[in-house]
Amino acid sequence: MSENVDTTLAPKKIRPPSGRVSRLFESKWLGWVALAIAVAAPFVNATPYALNIMTTAAIFVLLASGLNIVVGYCGLLDLGYIAFMAVGAYTSGIVAKAFDLPLLFTIPVVLVMTVLAGLIIGAPTLRLRSDYLAIVTLGFGEITRITANNLAITGGPSGIFGIPGILKIGDFDFQQPAVFYYVTILVVAGFVLAAARLGKSRLGRAWRFVREDEDAAEAMGIHTYKVKLLAYTFGAIWGGFGGVLFAGHLSAVAPTSFVFLQSALVLMAVVLGGMGNMRGVVIGALVISLLPELLRDLAEYRYLAFGVLLIVVMLFRPQGFWPARGYEPERKPAEEREAVAVAGEQR
């Protein structure tokens, strides 16, 4: 950030968005609408293929919402985010297989491992700023994958397979595709909501202060290193849970799932959707994960079409589909506030 507030970037309008569409999009019911659509989707199309795609997309939304905490809120460019998903997926897979446990019961171990991974990767790297941090996280992402590729416990290049399902109560198996889809939706919705709420809290504000101006944040008594480490740790937990769902979904984990391209795709979802705005990021993640499937008819040209589409979006909406806007309601005029206060006293 430059020292002065750069007013050349200032939008012309300073009023809050007032169009009908914008108001609709800012509505707090939008989350429920999205959830309803997700719940209703299998009633429209419940082929195994469609369920598979939708489950994958939901997991991708979880990853993007986690990376949004790190990149969008806190402004820390992380090019190796998929490493946390790898840690989550491998941990749950290995523990579940070794003790023949349903995946659900591996969550405490996954939680511990991802937090540890976040701290181990974050503690040395978060002292660096911007470009250096990006390069180091890129390195850590690759190190994680290559380590998994070479260790015996992670099954080497072929990975681990035959991972038990998430849970089985009597005859009811949560591993059935439709049930697993709903479990995924539930978990993802919870995490997305949690991430959005974190963004609007004291901690979320501290992340934004660090993103905007680290020195000024520090001068206000915000321990920027601790705050950044917290963002990283939360990002790691989100990624770890994505990994658990991933392992449950495929019942197999292999190093090829955690290549740099995957990190780049998650980052793209965040940037494309609108950094720092959870709603935009969810849409970005859905576009990134579903578009290649919708473009399947174009056969080998589909990634070309995908790329062109992304460039077009970046040209016309350089801050993403739906950038974070800093608006909040103004205070009510003084007379009104006094009227309320008087009414309160009389009561």
Binding site: E3, F209, G326
Partner: peptide, 12 residues
């Protein structure tokens, strides 16, 4: 030189 958080609201 001003060191505010330019994209955040006045209240924030």
């Amino acid at each position: 030189n001003l060191r505010l958080f330019p994209d955040l609201t006045v209240l924030d």
